[in-house]
Design a protein around this nucleic acid. Structure first.
Lengths: 226, 226
DNA sequence: TATAGTATTATCAAATTGTTAACGCCATGC
DNA sequence: GCATGGCGTTAACAATTTGATAATACTATA
């Protein structure tokens, strides 16, 4: 496969680095590696990768710091960033996502999961035209202008909040939206509603869509995936 | 593809100029380039392009200034103008749109986004031009010049506001018009009328047309659909 | 198995729209 | 000038839809 996509991987464990690199290269990705946060930052600026995978625990700058630095630079505003975390490290996971990452992978990393995630992310990025206001993901079509949603050309009627919520999640497929993030985007900072409210709307969407495309990330939030 | 549309691109970075030019030419557009604001202004007057893409940051006159100058000339009143801006530069974006641009593109520019945007703009222009005359949707015919509506060759008498409202909604079938949008388009920004007013007119249209073609999108607005 | 987090459901409150009637305005014809 | 009728607007109320919450059940994880 020839994708032409560049991926930067930063991790202080050489083994992991090697495994990931090998698998991604086999898939046709161009891979650059870094052994610590500072090297990651430098190489990111130099190679301008399409996707950056950052281990959170690294000597020097940790992954979250690197992410924050990168996101300050306009060139990296749209770059995909994924964190690699040790399992059960929920707090840092959340901090990571708050600092603007698109997703995270928990160690130990299975090559299968890794590849499907990476492939899926790129597939979705390409199919996401944030341009016309129409988002098409597989057979699902979300038209912001016409305010309607259709699956396989079949119209689905969503209430406003449901539409906004789905629309938000689908605007960045694969990205995990924190509950706070969702509240801010859809309800604004002034209105205060309970946590269950989101669940209920998610439920309604799932019900109406009859499609398993919204994944719960326990303790964090929700994400859209096909 | 042969469109015959002329496009003028102004940017001081030769690389960007070249990329855009290449992509647009591939699509069949005729492209003229300019390296700075003054040159852009001169070439615009000389070639009378259908679309002008202006980088905002340019030596000499910047894009906004050029836009303002152009808009003062009647020939450019209807010309499409797009700004090219550096990412996350919201203030200038807004100023740009205020100075009469039709849209803007943020750098780095993806060829895909560029083309879809340009194509979409021309499509829009073409379709709105048809709007000035007669709109036919199914068996419904709306004649803006004669100011009358007929369904299956049967004339329907609508009052002026009713006509304008129907005409507006039908100008973009499927698109949801926000209540504010409707107020702005039909009543203008200065007149202030209550919310029920729209409803009442919608009701009258529905009544007279005896046709289920106006859909309510609760909390949002109305749309026309056959 | 206890716990934290999420799903589900029913219910009620709130927001939004539909409908009707009434009022004032203006152009028209008498 | 004065009555008339159509039009645009508003008010008042009814009908509908939507949103939020609480209570409860479920589920994955430690």
């Amino acid at each position: 496969m020839q994708t032409g996509k560049k991926i930067l991987i930063a991790d202080d464990e050489p083994d992991i680095l090697e495994i990931i690199q090998f698998n991604l290269q086999t898939e046709g990705y161009e891979v650059v590696t870094a052994k610590n946060g500072d090297e990651a930052f430098e190489k990111a600026k130099k190679f301008l990768p399409d996707l950056i995978m950052l281990d959170i625990m690294m000597p020097g700058k940790n992954g979250i710091e690197v992410c924050n630095l990168l996101r300050k630079l306009p060139v990296f505003a749209e770059t995909l960033i994924i964190f690699l975390t040790a399992m059960s490290d929920e707090n840092t996971e959340i901090k990571g996502l708050e600092s603007g990452a698109d997703d995270y992978l928990t160690k130990p990393i299975s090559p299968k999961v890794l590849l499907s995630k990476v492939n899926a992310l790129f597939r979705r990025i390409n199919s996401t035209k944030q341009d016309t206001g129409v988002v098409v993901i597989g057979d699902l079509k979300i038209d912001r202008e016409k305010y309607n949603v259709s699956y396989k050309s079949e119209d689905i009627v969503l209430a406003r909040k449901e539409f906004e919520l789905l629309s938000l999640l689908a605007s960045k497929p694969g990205k995990v939206f924190l509950r706070n993030e969702i509240l801010n985007q859809i309800w604004g900072t002034e209105v205060i509603v309970g946590d269950r409210t989101i669940d209920v709307h998610i439920r309604k969407i799932r019900q109406k869509l009859d499609l398993d495309c919204i994944t719960t990330v326990k303790g964090v939030g929700y994400k859209f995936e096909m």
